Amino acid sequence: MALNTPQITPTKKITVRAIGEELPRGDYQRCPQCDMLFSLPEINSHQSAYCPRCQAKIRDGRDWSLTRLAAMAFTMLLLMPFAWGEPLLHIWLLGIRIDANVMQGIWQMTKQGDAITGSMVFFCVIGAPLILVTSIAYLWFGNRLGMNLRPVLLMLERLKEWVMLDIYLVGIGVASIKVQDYAHIQAGVGLFSFVALVILTTVTLSHLNVEELWERFYPQRPATRRDEKLRVCLGCHFTGYPDQRGRCPRCHIPLRLRRRHSLQKCWAALLASIVLLLPANLLPISIIYLNGGRQEDTILSGIMSLASSNIAVAGIVFIASILVPFTKVIVMFTLLLSIHFKCQQGLRTRILLLRMVTWIGRWSMLDLFVISLTMSLINRDQILAFTMGPAAFYFGAAVILTILAVEWLDSRLLWDAHESGNARFDD
């Protein structure tokens, strides 16, 4: 018995066209964080690309023209004298008006014999932002004059995390709450300039795509075929072959399989920071003279006294001054041990922890910024005066060393310790 099946006739004509040209192939790229070699397709503007294995951002879609970056830099340069030299806060102490600005706080630190601690604050609040705007201006002028731009481009990517104007702005709020127990506070004209400078700096850093600047100024022929001998440069993120001198053909720094002496430098910085954190938390970090009496505060006791007036601000200072430094030390110690013992479990967790400490590390400088600003506000000789204690130097040095330890660690070593050939990683 035959089955009668109805015929289905399409209502619209289906047209099949042959592909007349070869589909576009992607360029081969190595991930600078996990060293995976993959094919990167062509990316349009405002599109980002991520590593298929570790999800690290390979290409950032946010990109401004150099002219727009230069305009932002010149605007920031105009704001800087007002943000640093004009009063941020006014207080009335014992019937006398006192003005506080950024430069005055750094000068008070240096004047009291601790120039190293003052230079830490100076670099993060004044030096690094000033280098940022002058570097962008150098790129703008240098591109037109045919100057060598490689050193500036190499420095810009590392400079971003040292620009800490946003953290200093939080420190202004913390210092205001600490001082309000002794005097009446009012915002100064410099505060508005400083807030504007923070906003412009944040926007500029978020749109400063150094890798795209490398592509514009020093374009290189990408690798179009897969080759395990391809290496990625950690300076400019170019994937290719080393030249005859073993250097990256684009930025001219040595092109090595792994960062040289990464573990040794990381261990040295980490152990030194552990040693410095002990006096930083045991010795007094601030000293207040009130009517001839002397009151010393460690980091913890200062947080407890701050909690009596504002528990939320005390929580912020606790996280930045105690929780973050010790968390960074514990995480980095764990990561280094996992590399030495070739741990194969929990790779995803370790990668996330490394990215976390990379982002939060700079916030530990908050305590030094609060001390710097408070020193310029309260300084009335023996009637009422505020000065920093010996722990300030140890704390600042420990924070900087932990930042350097994270920067010096080559994250690809975590993958080397893991089993080879993993296309995915999980716990």
Rank of each mutant, 00 (worst) to 15 (best):
T5F: 11
P10R: 14
K12I: 07
T15M: 12
V16I: 10
V16D: 12
Q29F: 10
R30T: 10
Q33D: 11
Q33E: 11
D35S: 10
F38T: 11
I43H: 13
I43V: 09
N44L: 07
A49Y: 10
R53K: 13
Q55S: 11
D60K: 11
R62G: 11
D63V: 15
W64C: 14
L66I: 14
T67G: 12
L69G: 08
A70I: 15
P81R: 13
P81F: 05
F82W: 08
A83H: 03
A83D: 04
E86Q: 14
L88M: 15
L94R: 00
G95Y: 06
I96C: 07
N101V: 01
G105D: 02
G105L: 01
Q112N: 15
A115S: 14
A115P: 08
I116W: 01
F122L: 13
C124A: 06
G127P: 03
A128M: 03
L130H: 07
I136M: 07
Y138M: 03
R144M: 14
L145H: 04
M147R: 03
R150A: 03
M155C: 04
L159E: 02
E161R: 08
W162G: 01
W162D: 01
I167M: 02
V170G: 15
G171F: 00
G173D: 00
G173L: 14
S176I: 11
K178T: 01
V179A: 14
Q180A: 12
Y182I: 11
A183G: 01
H184M: 15
H184G: 12
A187Q: 12
G190I: 02
L197R: 00
I199K: 04
I199D: 01
I199Q: 05
L205H: 13
L205Q: 11
H207C: 15
V210K: 13
L213E: 04
L213G: 13
R216S: 07
P219N: 10
A223E: 13
T224R: 13
T224E: 15
R225K: 09
F238G: 07
Q244G: 11
Q244Y: 09
C248E: 00
P249V: 06
I253H: 02
P254L: 05
L255R: 08
L257Y: 15
L257G: 04
R260D: 04
R260C: 05
K265P: 02
W267N: 07
L270F: 05
L270G: 07
I274M: 08
L277H: 01
L278S: 08
L278V: 11
A280K: 04
L282V: 07
P284M: 05
S286Q: 00
I287H: 05
L290G: 01
G293F: 07
Q295S: 04
I299D: 03
S301Q: 07
G302M: 01
S305E: 05
A307V: 14
A307N: 12
I311M: 11
I316E: 00
V317R: 00
L323M: 12
V324C: 10
V329P: 08
M332S: 06
T334P: 06
L335F: 13
L337W: 14
S338V: 15
K342F: 11
C343L: 14
G346V: 14
R348W: 11
R348V: 12
T349F: 13
T349Q: 13
R350I: 07
R350K: 14
L352Y: 12
L353P: 09
V357E: 09
I360Y: 06
I360D: 00
G361R: 01
G361C: 09
L373H: 09
S376N: 01
I378L: 08
D381V: 02
D381H: 08
L384P: 01
G389L: 01
A391D: 01
F393Q: 14
G396H: 01
L404F: 05
L404E: 11
E407C: 07
L409N: 08
G421F: 15
A423V: 09
F425L: 14
